[in-house]
Every structure is written in C-alpha cells, then in structure tokens.
C-alpha cells in the first residue's frame, strides 16, 4: 500500500512537472525559435569551403574533410540543444524549489521527487534531441540518424544535469542562466569548433569538455558509417557522473535541516 501511494505521488509530481513546462510560454517559444534561428544563421552565413576535422575512435584518429557549414551546423546544434536542456532543467530544479522543500517537510520523499522530475526531464531531453536531429537532417544528409540522435540525447542529458546542478545550488535565476550560457558557449560553440578556433583540435583541454564525446558521436553518426564506441563510453560516463551529482545535490537541498542562516525561500 505505501508503495502504491508513493507511485501515485510520483505520478502526480511527474504530471505536474510536465504541466509546469507546458505552462511556460517563453520555454515553448525558445524550443522552436532558438534552433530555427541558429541553424538558419549557419545555413545562411557559413561557407562551403572544406576543412579537416579529426574524429577520435579511441586510439585511432580519422581525419574527415567537411565543409565549414557542416561543422558549424553540428556544433551549433550541440550548443543549442545543450543550452535548451540546461534551461528546462533550471525550470524544473530551480524555480519553486522552496515549494518542494515544503512538500518534503509535508512528507514528499526526495527520492520520489527526484525520480519523477528526472522522468519529466528525460522526456524533455529526448524531445530536444529529436528536434535537433530533425532540424539537422533537413539541411544536411545524415549517414546514421539514430547515432546522431543518441549523441544529441547524451548532450542534452549532460547539459540538463549541469543546468539542474547549477539551478539547485544557485539562489537566483539569472546568475544560474549565465553560468549555463557560459559553459554551452565555451564548450561546443567555441573551444571545440575549428571553424571559430583554429587550434581547437590540437588542444588537449577539449577532451575534458562535457560535450566533447557526444559531439564525436554526432560527427561519426552524421558523416561516417562507423560507430564510435569509445565516444559513447566517454559520453555515458559524463552523463552518469553529472546525473549522480544532480541527484546528490537535490537530496541535500530537500532534506532538512536546511542551511543555518538561510531563509526558507532562499
């Protein structure tokens, strides 16, 4: 019986999490406008000039000749899907967190809360990955659409978890949002992208960026017929680590006693 009640509460939290996102008109507008604007800008402005791009299949390095437009499209799609996933996670795990802390006081299990929010969150990340893959497929030919989708899905999970972590730890929405924009911009849009940063692929630091392995998966899926197993493993490790940190910080924030000196609504 208690398990049934928990499942009922989990279903309610999950349903209402989806409603929260649905009732956020700005979020719905961004979901369409941001991918459309960024993909459109690359299609409109990037050149067809070819340049080499290194793909890392574990120990083996493969050099592909791709147009600047193709490279720009993948990195912009990665940055856009990462940013949007982090933004939605911010809504789920930052806004109204005080309400769920109150619910936890009233008996809501932090485990039930996290599981229900996480399920709603995965629904969003899958939708985002689907939209991005579809958008990319409209402007370039994809060799393995499912691998591309999987790569974008992992980007959205990793960035979503990052957005959730920042949201739970931050007291204010705007600084949290700026942290998300900062990392999404530095990572996929700039440091990894040889179109905008010529030394990108020579720098070892890019391998430590959260979108590095999923981007490698997307490039392999989009422009080769090979599966990039090592990149999948790296991306999964990133996803598991960031999700574990998210679960831990949510648990800490929902369980009392709360921080000394903190306000209930802080």
């Amino acid at each position: 019986m208690p398990e049934q009640r928990r499942a009922g509460t989990a279903w309610l939290v999950m349903r209402q999490s989806a409603l929260e996102l649905w009732r956020n008109p700005l979020g719905l507008v961004l979901l369409v406008v941001i991918p459309a604007v960024f993909i459109g800008m690359i299609v409109w402005t990037a050149s067809e000039k070819s340049m080499p791009l290194k793909l890392f299949f574990g120990e083996e390095t493969v050099s592909l000749m791709l147009t600047q437009r193709q490279i720009g499209l993948v990195f912009v799609c990665a940055a856009v899907s990462g940013f949007l996933a982090a933004y939605y996670a911010l809504i789920l795990f930052h806004r109204d967190l005080a309400y769920f802390r109150y619910c936890a006081f009233m008996g809501l299990s932090p485990v039930v809360f996290t599981a229900a929010r996480f399920t709603a969150f995965v629904g969003i990340t899958a939708t985002l990955a689907g939209i991005t893959t579809f958008g990319l497929s409209r402007v370039t030919t994809l060799e393995q659409p499912f691998s591309v989708f999987a790569g974008f899905l992992l980007i959205t999970v990793i960035y979503g978890a990052y957005g959730g972590i920042v949201g739970v730890l931050s007291r204010s929405f705007m600084p949290a949002l700026l942290f998300i924009v900062l990392l999404a911009d530095l990572d996929a849009a700039w440091l990894q992208n040889p179109v905008y940063y010529s030394a990108a692929q020579e720098s070892a630091v890019i391998q430590w960026l959260p979108a590095y392995y999923p981007c490698q998966m997307v490039f392999a899926g989009a422009f080769t017929t090979r599966h990039n197993g090592p990149a999948l493993v790296g991306a999964l490790i990133w996803a598991v680590l960031t999700l574990a940190i998210l679960v831990a910080v949510v648990q800490l924030r929902l369980r009392g006693p709360l921080s000394t000196g903190g306000r209930f609504d802080a």
Binding site: P2, R5, G8, T9, L12, V13, Q16, L19, E20, R23, N24, D96, A98, Y99, R101, Y102, C103, F105, M106, G107, L108, R263, F264, D265
Partner: peptide
C-alpha cells in the same frame, strides 16, 4: 506548518496543489 513566506507553486492550480499535498502520507 503554515509558513510566512509565499512558498506555493506558482504554476499549479489550487486543486493541483491540494491533490499533491493530500497524497503525501506524513508517516
């Protein structure tokens, strides 16, 4: 506990809020 702060969820309706809180068992 009825807190002084306005902690209720802004996106929910009164019924949705009551349904969620009512489902909590409080031991």
């Amino acid at each position: 506990y009825c807190p002084q702060e306005n902690v209720l969820h802004r996106s929910y309706t009164v019924d949705e809020h009551l349904e969620l809180i009512a489902s909590l068992t409080r031991g």
